[in-house]
Structure formats: structure tokens, C-alpha cells
Design a protein around this nucleic acid. Sequence first.
DNA 1: AAGCAACCGGAACACTACTTCCGCTTTGTC
DNA 2: GACAAAGCGGAAGTAGTGTTCCGGTTGCTT
Lengths: 187, 187
Amino acid sequence: MTLTHPVAKPLRADAARNRARVLEAAEKVFADAGQEAQMEDVARRAGVGVGTLYRHFPTKQKLAEAVLERQIDALAAFIAAECATDPDPWAGLTRVFRRAAQDQAANRGQADALLSLADDLPDRCCHRVRLGPPTGAILARAQAQGLARPEVTEEDLHTLFCGLSAVTRTGGDWERYLEIVLTGVRV
Amino acid sequence: MTLTHPVAKPLRADAARNRARVLEAAEKVFADAGQEAQMEDVARRAGVGVGTLYRHFPTKQKLAEAVLERQIDALAAFIAAECATDPDPWAGLTRVFRRAAQDQAANRGQADALLSLADDLPDRCCHRVRLGPPTGAILARAQAQGLARPEVTEEDLHTLFCGLSAVTRTGGDWERYLEIVLTGVRV
DNA sequence: AAGCAACCGGAACACTACTTCCGCTTTGTC
DNA sequence: GACAAAGCGGAAGTAGTGTTCCGGTTGCTT
């Protein structure tokens, strides 16, 4: 499902091509520069003019959201495919954290998104909204098996994700961070 | 070569008064807005013109550093007076974290400083440089008494402080964060 | 009290980055 | 192949904010 609405809007061939180029370029530029990415850089990298950017994405914020949404989609898919069904829920939970850390370390934009107040992000690219429930479900299974401390909540995990973003953003050692934090969650 | 040499430079009475006002105003404005604080806001709050700001602090960055330095000084003094000498090193360490969290929650500027790369901050207002050693010493005592996991390092604690800044900045529940993280450090 | 130097206020400046606008080009259709 | 509509490029417009400049003022010294 690529479109959010059933309203068919046939895009001209060159327009569709440019839209894809812009998204791809934006992904790279936001990965490097986070929210400080510049529209002109995105345009140059995509090989289009800034006008074309604005035809497809009315504002920088919307472009950032589109990029973020793709990455959240990928992460959600990874969780569903590789973590949620793991017979060892603790291993699954660990894998979620490690993947999130790797993503953030490679994508400053993703770390920045977790550091800004989530209120100004729509649900479809909100880390907490999209990833909280599946991650919480894994946590619940771990708790049911006595592998995780029972008083830890889904909300707590989100807090730990936020902390993680600060570590990756400052170039800290996120492996050590995860080790300590997961020790604090484990029984 | 330090400019803070014993070279006495007697400041005119009004200049000294204004300098103090600027610092006080800046502390409040940076506490509210962090690095996004605006020089004009500081000037207005201090009841002076922007020109006066720039006579005392040649750049916004320098002003932010001066504010930060005072807060780091206060935190260092607190650690030395109330935590370093605690017979129970674990209680001391906990108090350091709690105080840091409270400071950050009340001072967005302090949280922002921990989220930016520390490289561009001079030593005298660098969290890691100023607070790492005394905090590390408390950790070492806790480890010697078998209260903290032996493989945790001073560096790790700094990483956890960085994570803490993300939690306070996003309005997360830092009490829960500390509880989980400190559980991960404790034996 | 007078003179001078330091200091002050805030308008003007400079710079950066997002967004708009419009003449030209490409695409799809009859 | 020609026409209309959709799309394109990038220069120009705009806005926000850090910094400078200078005529006027205040404090210190003689």
C-alpha cells in the first residue's frame, strides 16, 4: 500500500521519477545533517531545482516526515518479522534495541526526531505511536516468562529509546549504553 | 595562554552592574529556550541594549558558555560537598544523578549542552571534563565496596548523563529513567 | 567643575535558509 | 504533429537572528 488515500492521482512520468529521486536524496542528506539539512542540498543531490522539491513536498517539515515515515516503516517491518515472533522474547527485545541504535547511528535525522517533542509529528511517523505497541508486546511476553522486571512499562522503553538517541547523536558508545540499560530491565 | 590572567581590569561601576544583570537574565532565558535563546530576549530581560551584551560577551556562544560554567560550578560544588564524602558511595552516586536530572529539567540550556558535541566547549564548562573525575571517584568507591558492577566506567556514566539529557529535554519521566539505569549499574 | 575615556542603546547591517513565482520545457492526448 | 496541461529550474523574495556601528551618555579623575 503506497498511497494513503484511494484517490487515484496519476503522476506524470517525469514527476514520479523526480519524486523518487528527491526522497532518496533527502534520506541521505537528513541522515548526515539531521534537522539541519538544507533544502538546496537535497535538490542538488537529487539533480533537480528547489522548485521541484516544493511541488512534491510543500514544506521542509513535510519532507522530513516523509523520510522518517519510510524509516519507521522499515523498523516496524523488522520488528514484526524478526523480533515479535522470536520464541525467546528477551532476545527479540534486545534485537529491537540494537537495530534502533544502528539506525539512529547511521541516521542523524532519526535521532533528531526522537529528541524533539513528538507532539509536532503526525502519528504515521511517530516513534512512540508506531513502535511502542509492538515493542510493548514483546516486553509483555518477556515479563510473562519472568525475563523482564514486571514494573517496567512500554512507556519506560520509549524513554530509553529517547536516551539512546542522545548517545548516538553525540557519538557515544551505544553498545555500552544498551548493555547497562538492558541490565536494568532484565530480571 | 589564558586571558583570565591576574591582569586586573577595574570595571566601571555601571559596567559591572550591567554585566551581572546580563548574566542573570541569560541564565533564565537559556533555561527556557536552550541554545535557541535569542540575544534580544536576553537584552530585554536584562534591561539593556544588545550592544551592551556584545561588549561583555563577544558572541552568543561565549555568553552561553559563561552561563553554563556557573551551573557546572554549582553542580561540582554540590558533588564535592554532599556526595563525594558520603559514607555510602551508592547513595552519593544516586544523589549526583538526581541532582543532574533536576538541573537539566529546569535548564534546557544544560540539557542542550550535553546533546551537542562536547568538542566545541572549553574545558571549564564541559560536563565530562569537570564532573567526570569526581563522579568517577564515587563510582570507584562503590565498586570497591561491591555496590556497583566492576565493569562500569566513568565514561559509561557520562554516556548515561547524555541519555538523561534527552529524557529531560523531551519531558520524559526521568525518575523512571534513573531507576532503570541505576539498576543496571548496581550489583 | 571640567574633561576624557569608557560605556550605553538600539537602529542598521549581514547572512543564512526557507519559500514563492514565473517563463520555459516535457509529457500525454487528439 | 500540435495543443494544453502538468511539471521544471533557479532567481528573487522574505523572514528571522546574530553582530556591528556610532552618536549620545555616564562615571571616574584631576
